[in-house]
Design a protein around this nucleic acid. Structure first.
Lengths: 242, 242
DNA sequence: AAGTGGTCTAGACCACTAT
DNA sequence: TAGTGGTCTAGACCACTTC
């Protein structure tokens, strides 16, 4: 019934996702792990692995002694905060068909805070790229990325519209391994307000992030500001321990 | 009341956390799973379980074929967004010794939005409880909880300082199973500003949440506002697939 | 080629929830 | 008490990284 290469666990996940989407589970109750294992012809360990991953991504939850259950449809989270990698993808996950507008690419001197975050000397040159992500004509996300100029060795200006990790891959000799992000409240300044088409002073969520390569060296400092009315982050918090 | 018997997996986690905190791992490299299993005298499955949980909470990361590594100290996240359950606990995780001040408990008529969120009729009575969490004399979190009055059957006013889930457990015939939360940017109004000791209009992060019981019935509507300078949420985003 | 994490099996017993 | 998820064992082979 089940063959290789997408791992067995992934196939079990896909199978369960389909049945969940099809509303097959009476009362939201998913069959027991033992039952699933015997029906699908895999070990209980594999089933447990699949269920753990579905639980982790918010599709289901488990209650010891009671069973495994589907999360209510209204609770399905479209993009898990920890897994965001490309804002274009986030917008697609929300049902948008995003476009990207590169607002500017220029070289500037790093101020003290940026230099410190990027591990370079103050006033060292950085490339600043400002981009706007839109749904139709509505601006949704405004990002500013700053990369030390020393890391860039190509003619890169034409690639600015690529997702950042592809850009870094292509034009630096390294690749982005992870981001450290802070969720910061801001009030839109005149510049941001004009670009996001909202009044100046509007409160907004900003992700302040530093992107690192595999050696934990900072590569990029990014700020992203969101139109709260068009893109709002949600999460489910479920009591685990105790 | 609670007899804790730490599982093997939890003991392995604790052991590794200690060695990580002690900086024992040369170059951040953690011994292989097989090595840990034989040294600790447990199966590799148990070691893998412990490592998976440490990876999930951001303490370590794994690279297939290469090894398992400690996350940089600066990347340690003190409280994972999805696991917040009590703001007192969040503050303790940040090294604070929090106190709680109950600002008011009163009955009011639900407005349309609140009634809709709680599944009751507009103007139905709700109990509104406003609380402030402080570190020393600094206000850090301001929360407003609203529970339909019909759900409360006891004399409850004196218990308002308890964590909300304990309060619900004790005074309603149900208990909180999960929250659905939205991260919302706000500007502090005069009331909030005075309580949080910041200028009115300061941008802040607000969690707008609805708490549900096991039957997916809404029990409580909560708003929590944070002092950005005292409590900032961070997260690590690491590329997983592809 | 050697060593690592990733996947998978087939069992066993325990802790908890429901009825 | 029956059934569920939680923990744990002792193996096996595969995919990938590093040298």
């Amino acid at each position: 019934m089940i063959a290789r290469n997408p791992s067995l666990t992934e196939q079990v996940m896909a199978h369960l996702r389909e049945r969940i989407a099809g509303g097959e589970f009476e009362g939201g109750r998913i069959p027991s792990e033992a039952k699933l294992a015997s029906v699908l012809g895999v070990s209980r360990t594999t089933v447990r692995d699949a269920l753990s991953r579905l639980e982790h991504d918010g599709s289901i939850y488990r209650k010891q002694g009671a069973g495994t259950f589907v999360n209510e449809p209204g609770l399905q989270i479209r993009s898990r905060l920890e897994e965001i990698w490309s804002y274009e993808q986030v917008l697609r996950d929300h049902g948008y068909t995003p476009s990207v507008r590169v607002l500017g690419v220029l070289e500037e001197a790093a101020d003290a805070a940026i230099a410190s975050d990027l591990g370079i000397a103050p006033a060292d040159p950085v490339i600043a790229m400002e981009k706007l992500f839109l749904e139709d004509d509505d601006p949704v996300v405004l990002t500013m990325n700053r990369i030390p100029a020393a890391y860039l060795h190509d003619d890169f200006a034409e690639s600015a519209s690529e997702p950042l990790y592809e850009f870094v891959e292509a034009h630096c000799d390294r690749h982005l391994a992870y981001y450290l992000s802070e969720i910061v409240p801001v009030a839109l300044d005149d510049h941001q307000a004009a670009l996001l088409d909202e009044p100046a002073g509007t409160p907004a969520i900003c992700f302040e992030e530093i992107g690192f390569d595999q050696s934990n060296a900072p590569i990029v400092r990014a700020s992203s500001i969101f139109r709260d009315d068009l893109l709002r982050f949600r999460l489910i918090r479920r009591k685990t321990g105790a």
